[in-house]
Design a protein around this nucleic acid. Structure first.
Lengths: 348, 348
DNA sequence: GAGGTCATTGTGAGCGCTAACAATTCATGC
DNA sequence: GCATGAATTGTTAGCGCTCACAATGACCTC
C-alpha cells in the first residue's frame, strides 16, 4: 500500500493518472462540452480513485468568486430570526452558495461594522442583514462595504434593497378580524419603539381603527418578552369593564404574558377579552387558550432575499431600490373566538 | 478624481504607493517584527488611503488555511439548537474563524453526507455537527471526510469526539427535586426514541428512582412538540388519583402541552400534579404555572466544542476520544412547588 | 579597516486553478 | 489526395499572496 499522501491530490495528479493534461481535467469538472466521452470517463475514474476534490481557494482566486454569502443577524434564538436564518441558508444552498453567519448580541454601528468586516475579510460576495431595528438600518446605510447588502425586516421605504413581510397588512388582518367579531375597539400592545416591525404593526392597527371610524385607545409598549407582556397585561386588566374587550399584541411571546396576567386577574379569554398575537410561533397553538395570530412566510422571504442578492452580485441590479413585500396570513384560534376550533383547538 | 478601480487594489499596488516591495507590505500585515517603524507607518498609510484588504482566497491558497469552520445542524428554530448555533458562532468568531452553517430539515446519512460535501467543497477546516439523534451519529461515524468533526449533543460513549451537557445529571436533578418534595414516585414523558438526549434523560430519571428504591412507572413518549405533550398529558390525567402526583417531562415544549391537558382535565398544577421540564426556554417562566426546568449552559458547550475542534485541526488531538461534559442546573419554579415564586403560582 | 553580526528589505518561486490561445486530430467535400 | 473547418487536447500565463532565501546597509569588534 502506498504511503498516505501528505497533501491532497491536485488536478495535475489526476491528469497524470488519467494520461491527460490538467486542463482536460478542469474541462471535465467544468462540464465543458468538447471532451470525448472516453476521455471524460477516464478522467472521472481517476478522480474517483484518487478521491480528488477541487481546491476552492485556488478556484476562488482565479474566478474571483468565492460562492459564499454572509448573513448578519441578532436575537437568533427567537423564532422569527431563526426561521429567517434557516430559510436564507436553505435558499442559498440551493443556489450552490455557502452561508457564513455572524450572530450579534446587539446591533449597533460598531458591531455591525465589525461583522461586515469579518465577513468581508472572509471573502463573501454579498450579505443579507436581518436588521429589524431602525438604528441598525441607519448604521447600515452609513457603512461602506465592497459587496452588495440586502436587508430583511427593515421595513419599506428605506434606501437599501430589502425584503419584508407586509407587517401593516398583518396588523390589519388581526385588527380587522377583532372588529369583525363585534368588538367596538381594539387595544394594542406594541413592540420596542426602535423596531421597524413594531412601528409597522402599530401603524396597521391604527389605520384599521381609523378606517372604521374608531378613535384608537392608548398604546402600550413592551420589549417582545413574555415578561413585558405580563406587565402590560396587568395594566390592561385594569381597563376591563371600561371599554377593553380586545387586544392586538405585537408578538406571540408578549401575548403569552398578557394571557397569564389576565388569567391571574380573573379575566377570561376570550369571553371577557379577546387576544391576538403575531408570529405564529409553534407554541402559540398550545397557549391557554390557543392564540389567534399572524403567520409569516419565512421561506418566501429567504428565497426572495437570496434571489435579490444574487441579482445584485451578478450586476443585474434593476433600476431604483428594490423593496419586496411578502403577504402574511391570519391564523384564527380560540383566543379571539370561543368556537374557533372546538374544545380548545386541540386535535383529539 | 481618479476613475474608480475596476479591480480592488492588490498588495503590489500598495507596495508601489508606499515605495516598498510587496513582501514588506505582507510583513506589515503579518505583524512581522523586523520592519522599521517609519516604513510600517508608510505602508499602513498607503493601505488606508487605498482601502486595501488582503485577498482571502490568495491567502488561503498559499497558507492552506481558510479560517472557516462548518456547522451542521437540524431543527435550528428550536431553542436548544439555535442557542448552540449562536454559541458556536460566537466562540469561533472570537478565534478569528468564520462559520458556515448548513441547516438540515432531517438528519440522515444522505443529507449529512451532502452537507459535509457542501461544507468540504467550501474549504472548511473542520466541522461541528449538532447531531442529537443516534442515527445521525451512526451516519457520521460511517462517513469519510478530509477534516476533523466534533459532535454536540450526541451523548457520551460514542466513538467521535464531542461535547455534551450532562443530560443524566439534569434528569437526576429534576427527578430528585420532585422526590425531595415528598412525591412517592415520578412519572416520565420521554423524547423521541432515536434521540440520545431523550435516552439520557430517561436513564437519569430511572436511575434516580431506582436509587430511591422506587419502581419506575411506565414511560410515555412524545416527539418534543407541544402537541405530543398535550396528548400524553391527556393520558396522564387518567392516572391522577392512582399514584400519579409528579411528572418529569423531557423538554419544556412538551411540558407546555402537558400543562394544558391537565388544566383542561381539571387537574391543578402543582397542587394535584407537579410538573418539571427540561431546557429552560425563555417562555417557560410564563407558562401557567411557571415551569420548573433544567437549564443548560450553551455558551460553555460552544466554547468547548470550538476549542476541541481547533485542537484537532492544529494536530493537538490528545490520546483517546475526548468526550467533554458540561453541568446543567435546576431552575425551580411554581410548577413543582406552590410557593416557589409567590404570586406567579396558580391562577386564582 | 577587514570581518562579522544584526536588522531591514527585496527577489523569486510556487500554491492549484481557469482562461486564452496554440496545436493536434479527425471527418468531410471536391 | 488534400484543403477546410470543427472537435478535441495541450501549453502558457497569470490570479494575489506567503515563504525561503538573497541582498543591502548599519553598526560593532578587534
Amino acid at each position: 500500500m502506498a504511503p498516505a499522501q501528505l497533501r491532497p491530490p491536485t488536478m495535475a495528479d489526476v491528469a497524470r493518472r488519467a494520461g491527460v493534461s490538467h486542463q482536460t481535467v478542469s474541462r471535465v469538472l467544468g462540464d465543458h462540452p468538447n471532451v470525448r466521452d472516453e476521455t471524460r470517463a477516464r478522467v472521472l475514474r481517476a478522480i474517483e480513485e484518487m478521491g480528488y476534490r477541487r481546491n476552492s481557494s485556488a478556484r476562488a482566486l482565479v474566478t474571483r468568486r468565492t460562492r459564499t454569502l454572509g448573513v448578519v443577524a441578532s436575537d437568533t434564538t427567537l423564532y422569527g430570526p431563526a426561521s429567517t436564518l434557516f430559510a436564507l441558508e436553505e435558499a442559498a444552498r440551493a443556489e450552490g452558495y455557502l452561508v457564513s453567519t455572524v450572530s450579534l448580541r446587539r446591533l449597533t454601528v460598531d458591531t455591525l461594522s465589525e461583522a461586515l468586516d469579518h465577513l468581508g475579510g472572509g471573502g463573501v460576495e454579498g450579505v443579507v442583514a436581518i436588521a429589524p431595528q431602525r438604528s441598525a438600518v441607519e448604521a447600515l446605510a452609513e457603512l461602506r462595504h465592497r459587496f452588495p447588502v440586502v436587508t430583511v425586516g427593515s421595513g419599506p421605504g428605506v434606501g437599501i434593497p430589502g425584503v419584508n413581510v407586509d407587517q401593516q397588512l398583518g396588523a390589519r388582518l388581526a385588527t380587522g378580524h377583532l372588529l369583525a367579531a363585534g368588538h367596538r375597539t381594539v387595544w394594542h400592545l406594541a413592540g420596542p419603539e426602535d423596531w421597524q416591525e413594531a412601528a409597522d404593526r402599530a401603524a396597521g392597527w391604527r389605520a384599521t381603527l381609523e378606517a372604521a371610524g374608531v378613535e384608537p385607545p392608548m398604546t402600550l409598549r413592551g420589549d417582545w418578552s413574555p415578561l413585558s407582556g405580563y406587565r402590560a397585561g396587568q395594566e390592561l386588566a385594569g381597563w376591563v369593564g371600561r371599554g377593553l374587550t380586545a387586544v392586538f399584541v405585537a408578538n406571540d411571546q408578549m401575548a403569552l404574558g398578557v394571557l397569564r396576567a389576565l388569567r391571574e386577574a380573573g379575566v377570561r379569554t376570550p369571553q371577557d377579552v379577546a387576544v391576538a398575537g403575531f408570529d405564529d410561533i409553534p407554541e402559540s397553538e398550545f397557549f391557554a387558550p390557543p392564540l389567534t395570530t399572524v403567520r409569516q412566510d419565512f421561506s418566501a422571504v429567504g428565497k426572495r432575499s437570496i434571489a435579490l442578492l444574487l441579482d445584485m452580485i451578478e450586476g443585474r441590479e434593476p433600476a431604483g431600490v428594490p423593496r419586496i413585500a411578502i403577504e402574511p396570513q391570519l391564523v384564527v384560534r380560540a383566543s379571539t373566538f370561543p368556537y374557533a376550533s372546538g374544545q380548545g383547538a386541540a386535535p383529539t
